[in-house]
Structure formats: structure tokens, C-alpha cells
């Protein structure tokens, strides 16, 4: 029983830690609360001094405006996010497999290039893409934006997938080979199912990054027929500076994927952040 007493029983002695933890979290998340609060504030209360700390008289005008104005933008963002996930997986899953299991030479070089690729500022990429797209006539197109957004995720995805796949025992692949499976079938039927956690992590992040992207959207798609939600918010800010409840309501709605992600796939999120930084 000495083992039991060695550690303080959770509960009494750690209660102050829980209290402090709750306080710190509340402090950290105050801006998020404020966004929510403002989204429910009536326009006439917006300029109140001091501001209302709680939405005592909540209004849903802001959310009404979202439904009226921003539904197409939300749809566009969803499409761009999904397209970006598909493109990212299509490119990075085979490449991750090649780096983890197939290539004997050139691994280091490819990893190096991917690392450098992640360091290139997105402004630079945006200017480059703009210059290329002008000639191709891809400016203001959703496809062009999907391609551009995927460049945020692809290097990260290849590295995460390669790191994960190199943990798959080679014996499993050899077993598949003995059963007569070629490299492609081994990849599809053995490696991908085993690597589904990594695939999920990569998909979540590429979706979230595409959904959140502002720089590429504001440069490559700013006059498009179909603009993503980030531009929807930006246009709101430019147009009606008085109706911050609408802006913040849109912001709340635009945050939904992040919230869903955190609830549904928290361990993948934390895993993904760490995998990107401390590989191996």
C-alpha cells in the first residue's frame, strides 16, 4: 500500500491546481468568449460604454445575416477544403510510402527539400502563383485556389505519413509480397489501412488550413464568383464597420470546423502538431 500513498490522491491536494487551470484557460479563451458575446449583441448596444460583458438581450440578427449572405461562401470553403484534402492525399500518401519503405537512395535529399519548402513565406508563394495564374487564366478560380492551398499542407503531410509508415513492420509487406501482391497492391491493401491514423491527421490539418487560408484567397480569388468564408469575413469588415455582430457571427460560424475537430479528433490534433515538429 505504500505505492498508493507515494502519490497524492487526485482530488484534495490538486484542487487548487484545477482552480488555477480553469482560471488560466478562461483567461486564454477570453477573446473567443468575446467573439461569441459580440455576435449576440444588438447593434444599438454595440457602442455602449462600458461594453456589455454578457449578452443579456441576445439577438440573432448577426446569425440571420450569416444565413442570408454567407451560405455560398461557407459552401465554397467546404468544397475547397475537401478538394485540398483529396489533392494532398493523392500526392503525399504514395510519396510518404516511397520515402518510408521503398527508396534506398535520395531520402535525405527529398526530406531536405520538403523542409525548405515549409520555410518559404506564403506571400512569396502567392506572388509566384499570381504570376503563373495570370498567364493560365486561373485567377479567381476555385481550382487554382485548391492547388495553392494544398501547398501549405503537402510538405507537412509527406513528412507525417513517411514518419508513420516507416513504423510499419517490413515483415508485413514481405508477407504481402509472398502472397503475390505487387508494390501498388501492398500500398493500397496493407500500408494505407495500417496508416489510417496518419492519413486522418493529415486530412484534418489540410482541411483546416485550406478552410482558414486568407493569404491565397485574398490574392488569387479576391474577385471570384465563389469566394471562401475568410474573404466573406474580410469583405464584411471592409463594408459595414458598424455591424460587428454580423462580423463576429460569421467568425463564430467559421470557427465551427475547428471546434468539431477539437471535440472529435483531439488526440490527432495534438499528435499532428508534435509530428510536424519532432519527427522520427
Amino acid at each position: 500500500m505504500t505505492l498508493r500513498t507515494a502519490r497524492p490522491a487526485p482530488g484534495r491536494r490538486t484542487r487548487w491546481k484545477t482552480a488555477l487551470g480553469v482560471f488560466l484557460t478562461a483567461l486564454m479563451l477570453f477573446p473567443v468568449y468575446w467573439m461569441f458575446n459580440v455576435s449576440l449583441t444588438r447593434t444599438e448596444d454595440m457602442r455602449a460604454d462600458p461594453p456589455h460583458w454578457f449578452p443579456w438581450n441576445p439577438t440573432f440578427e448577426g446569425y440571420g445575416d450569416v444565413l442570408r449572405d454567407q451560405l455560398p461562401a461557407l459552401g465554397t470553403s467546404l468544397g475547397i477544403g475537401l478538394g485540398c484534402v483529396a489533392l494532398t492525399l493523392l500526392i503525399s500518401a504514395p510519396a510518404g510510402f516511397a520515402l518510408a519503405k521503398l527508396l534506398r537512395r535520395g531520402r535525405g535529399a527529398v526530406s531536405f527539400v520538403l523542409l525548405v519548402a515549409q520555410m518559404i513565406p506564403s506571400v512569396v508563394m502567392a506572388i509566384g502563383f499570381y504570376a503563373v495564374y495570370v498567364r493560365l487564366g486561373w485567377i479567381n478560380s476555385v481550382w487554382g485556389l485548391i492547388v495553392a492551398d494544398s501547398t501549405i499542407a503537402v510538405p507537412f503531410a509527406v513528412m507525417v505519413l513517411a514518419a508513420f509508415m516507416s513504423g510499419i513492420p517490413s515483415e508485413l509487406m514481405q508477407a504481402a509480397r509472398i502472397d503475390g501482391a505487387g508494390t501498388w497492391r501492398t500500398f493500397v491493401w496493407v500500408v494505407l489501412p495500417l496508416g489510417r491514423n496518419a492519413v486522418l491527421t493529415v486530412s484534418l490539418f489540410s482541411f483546416l488550413w485550406a478552410w482558414s487560408d486568407f493569404i491565397f484567397a485574398s490574392t488569387l480569388d479576391r474577385n471570384g464568383d465563389a469566394v471562401p468564408i475568410t474573404l466573406g469575413i474580410y469583405a464584411y469588415i471592409g463594408n459595414n464597420t458598424t455591424e460587428w455582430n454580423s462580423i463576429m457571427a460569421t467568425a463564430v460560424v467559421a470557427s465551427v470546423p475547428a471546434a468539431v475537430l477539437l471535440v472529435v479528433a483531439q488526440r490527432f490534433v495534438a499528435g499532428g502538431v508534435t509530428a510536424g515538429a519532432v519527427k522520427d
Binding site: W211, S212, A254, L261, V273
Partner: peptide, 22 residues
């Protein structure tokens, strides 16, 4: 480890996951 530590730590991720424009 204390009560709620996992949940609170997860909540700390929120600012990182929000779109920057938000």
C-alpha cells in the same frame, strides 16, 4: 495530472485552430 487537466489543455488549442481572420 489533476482533475480536468486533459480537457483544459485541449481547450488551450483553440486559438491555434481558429482561422487567423477570425
Amino acid at each position: 495530472n489533476f482533475r480536468l487537466s486533459g480537457v483544459l489543455r485541449a481547450m488551450f488549442l483553440v486559438p491555434w485552430l481558429l482561422p487567423l481572420i477570425v
